[in-house]
């Protein structure tokens, strides 16, 4: 029986499962190479859109007005960093958050649900893959931006940026569990996912500083861990931000914990509710 196995053996089995999930996710991505190209290009297009908008409004990449809001004149570096970190959020929401829906679409949900593996292990596997994949995309984003636009963001500090972004991943796991629970209850979530992704981008300082937002909206941003990850990274890079780096990192860790706990509790509730209603397998 599983419960009679030693902790070491159980851990090794869980790790084995995670390794297979990583392999499966990699195979799925390799199956559609155009998707990888798309993921690499899309965030860059959104950077270019704002770059052109800035050029159209102030005629360059520096703005003294921007400095009064963000503490830096260079809006381009500000949005490139924001966009690179946001990749972790969108990948997590679309990856972990919609993993159940994806299995439903592929017709493999039932097979996965009945395996004697903890659901959390499955999600950790998917989330780990997302984290690694996001790091790659974020790196490519900074590289492409440095090659094409008038900025240089490729140096050793990049590893620290990705390290801080990885701290954000724990909160994103929690957000992912939350979304998975939502999928179990409401099923059709593509539009909703789109909306939440855009809403998070809008209320957090991804493309503009918090101070341009109306006060109630800026208040919401204080409860989203992405805000602190962005502030910590910009502080470290010397791109605006007046607070302390350690304060931002501390707040990020606190939100990691809260999101993980609340997300997994909600997922357990949604799973129980879906089982009771006989709705796990319904499409």
């Amino acid at each position: 029986m599983v419960s009679e196995l030693s902790k070491g053996v159980r851990l090794s089995r869980e790790l084995h499962t995670i390794r297979y999930i990583l392999k499966k996710e990699l195979k799925l991505w390799k199956r559609y190479p155009s998707r990888i190209l798309f993921i690499l290009i899309m965030p860059f297009l959104s950077i270019l859109t704002l770059y052109f908008q800035g050029m159209g409004l102030v005629g360059g990449t520096q703005s003294s007005e921007f400095e009064s809001f963000a503490g830096t004149q260079d809006y381009l570096v500000f949005i490139i960093l924001g966009s690179a970190v946001f990749i972790f959020v969108s990948t997590a929401i679309w990856g972990v958050g919609n993993s159940i829906r994806r299995e439903q679409m592929m017709g493999t949900l039932e097979s996965i649900w009945v395996t004697p593996t903890s659901k959390i292990t499955i999600f950790v596997g998917v989330a780990l893959f997302d984290g690694l994949f996001s790091s790659y995309v974020a790196f490519m984003q900074l590289l492409i931006s440095s090659l094409i636009l008038p900025v240089n963001l490729i140096d050793l500090r990049l590893f620290v940026i990705i390290g801080i972004a990885f701290l954000l991943i724990f909160a994103l796991y929690g957000l992912g569990f939350f979304f998975t629970g939502f999928v179990l209850i409401y099923k059709e979530l593509e539009d909703f996912t789109n909306m939440i992704t855009s809403a998070i981008k809008m209320v957090t300082p991804v493309s503009y500083p918090l101070s341009v937002l109306p006060a109630p909206v800026a208040f919401i941003a204080l409860f989203i861990p992405l805000t602190y990850a962005l502030q910590a990274i910009r502080k470290y890079m010397g791109v605006g931000e007046s607070g302390s780096l350690y304060q931002y990192l501390g707040l990020l860790l606190v939100f990691d914990l809260i999101f993980l706990v609340v997300g997994s509790l909600f997922f357990r509730y949604a799973e129980r509710s879906a089982k009771r209603r006989g709705a796990i397998a319904t499409y």
């Binding site: 704002l50 102030v58 703005s63 009064s68 809001f69 855009s198 809008m202 503009y208």
Partner: peptide, 11 residues
């Protein structure tokens, strides 16, 4: 997002 970015660079 476009309006807010516009406000940030224009003041």
């Amino acid at each position: 997002p476009f309006l807010l970015f516009g406000k940030a660079v224009l003041g």
